[in-house]
Amino acid sequence: MAEAIDKQDHLFVVSSSPHTHSGASVKAIMLDVIIAMLPLTGAAIYLFGWNAIRLLLVCVISCVATEAACRKAMGRNAGIDDLSAVVTGMLLAFNLPPALPSWMAVTGSVIAIALAKQVFGGIGYNPFNPALIARVALLISFPVAMTTWSPWIMAAPAAGIDALTSATPLGAFKSAIDFGQTVPYLTNSTTFMQFFVGHQNGCIGEVSSLAILLGGLYLLFRRCISWQIPAFYLGSVAVLSTLIWAVAPDKNLPPHLHLVTGGLMLGAFFMATDMVTTPVTRKGMAVFGAGCGILTVLIRVWGGYPEGVSFAILLMNAVTPLINRATRPRVFGTGKKKS
């Protein structure tokens, strides 16, 4: 053998098949996610101005810096060229209220990258969505700052007079119901449209369902996400909230307002679709989405917090390995039964 190889003036490259590739890369996927977040970025800046720019810059820069520092500390190539830290930074910023102090945003970024991602081994190994871990850590650590919203003019509740509030639609609703009052705003299509385009209080990236849908459609078109997770997430929220609302319409938000308030849209298209922390099978993705939807509604309606998207997704992240195991497709040629 050696003789034949010696005779050859040069050797060709040898590797296992296949010898061609689709061209997909982690970096390209991350770049697509960043592109999909551009409408949200625009909407956030339009609606919240300087605060949105500040939070985005602080989160992205500190996430990237933390990523580089962690990789260096672990003796790995300090490159952040897969762009995943940029995505985490942007997603975290979108999940923060506009007036949050910058140092808290930095704290969140360090938690997201160092604690929720690199400790587990970096990209691909984190069981939970890093941005959501950071958001929940901040929510528990700084409950006041994380629920301080800018004043927001609500469309007239019944009396025909606009009211000023500094709560999110879900928050205002929950406290009104808790005090035995009725729904504090109209639940008509005008309110829906107002909420849908982003005229409501909330985290800087979650208020405009319109912008999120634009980005979500791009992700679907580019096949960066599969339709199962958002469809089953939004679908189960719609079905469950309709049922609950039908039973007690004066004590519950109607389904169309459930869909466009809080972090649901952002969660369904950008957080619950994070590849690393969600199932790999199509059936599993459907289960995951439905589970997120059910938990979200349960927390919103009966939980202590007005909003439950973050918790719902994190809880479903925890059972992702189990979902994967339970939804393995039937292998070709193995009969109809699960083997």
Binding site: H21, A24, V26, I29, D82, G121, G122, I123, G124, Y125, S226, M275, V276, T277, T278, P279, V280, T281, R282, M285, N324, R328, P329, R330, V331, F332, G333
Partner: peptide, 26 residues
């Protein structure tokens, strides 16, 4: 091209592509 292989990001594309319905990532 010389590629550096990365950890699996669980995107599920191999699961979609496998004609035998295996879960190659796992």
């Amino acid at each position: 091209s010389l590629y550096e292989s990365m950890p699996c990001i669980s995107c599920g594309r191999c699961v979609d592509a496998c004609p035998m319905n295996l879960v190659p990532s796992e």
